[in-house]
Amino acid sequence: MRGELLKIYKVLLDFYGHQNWWPAETRYEVVVGAILTQNTSWKNVEKAINNLKNENLLEEEKILNIDEDKLKELIKPAGFYNLKAKRLKNTTKFIVDNYGSTEGMAKTDKDTLTLRKELLSINGVGKETADSILLYALDRESFVVDAYTKRMFSRLGIINEKAKYDEIKEIFEKSLPKDLEIYKEYHALIVEHCKKFCRKKPLCEKCPISH
């Protein structure tokens, strides 16, 4: 399994090149993006993040202090804005109350498992969101599993399509070297590949993995 997953990684990297994810200027911007991207496309998230940037609001204290109705209006392009405004405030409050800032959280000497449990205790933060924050905002080796991962690797026969999130995560983490850059790149490459070839209706004839 280890050899197989690494081989696929190398094929994808050769084909697409480095993706350099997550597109963000600060650690906190990654946190905001991870919450806003729930159940929507990244294009919509970018619109919402640009709204926040235009108002100079992409800082923890500013998000905590902004009127919730105004926040809803600004993040509206990302959809589910009533829910996401609450989740954004909840998550930000947790970070500020416990670590002062996302930078402070990144510098903690707590282990990754402890941080993951803390993030999952926040209302509205599920496993994919928690792992995205750990990997891309806090630079922790915590593999992110999304719908694309399930689709692609069940089609390749590597995972069972009914496998649970943590089972899939464990397969990747046991099979790959514990390398932050590989974790980041692999997840980004999977997303790119599923947009190009491993779509709902797959384009298998030109797929670089099947050749």
Rank of each mutant, 00 (worst) to 15 (best):
L156F: 11
A130L: 09
H187K: 13
I49V: 15
Y99D: 00
C207W: 13
Y9V: 02
V32W: 06
S41H: 14
L64E: 08
K110G: 01
K201A: 00
V30C: 02
T102E: 04
K162W: 08
K195F: 06
E55C: 09
L180A: 03
K201N: 00
H18P: 08
C194Y: 05
L138A: 02
L138F: 12
N56L: 11
L203C: 04
I35H: 13
I133C: 04
D69R: 09
T91E: 11
D109W: 10
A130S: 09
E103M: 10
Y148V: 07
I122N: 11
S101I: 14
P208M: 03
F80Y: 15
E170M: 10
W21G: 00
I95H: 02
L119I: 02
F153T: 11
Y16W: 10
Y165H: 07
E61N: 14
P177F: 05
D69H: 12
N20R: 11
E141H: 03
E59V: 15
Y148A: 03
V191M: 12
F15K: 10
E118L: 02
R155T: 03
M105E: 01
T114W: 02
K7D: 13
G100S: 11
V45G: 14
K72N: 04
A188W: 13
E4D: 07
L52F: 01
K117V: 05
L176G: 01
R2K: 15
Y165R: 05
H211E: 05
V145I: 10
L203N: 09
G100L: 14
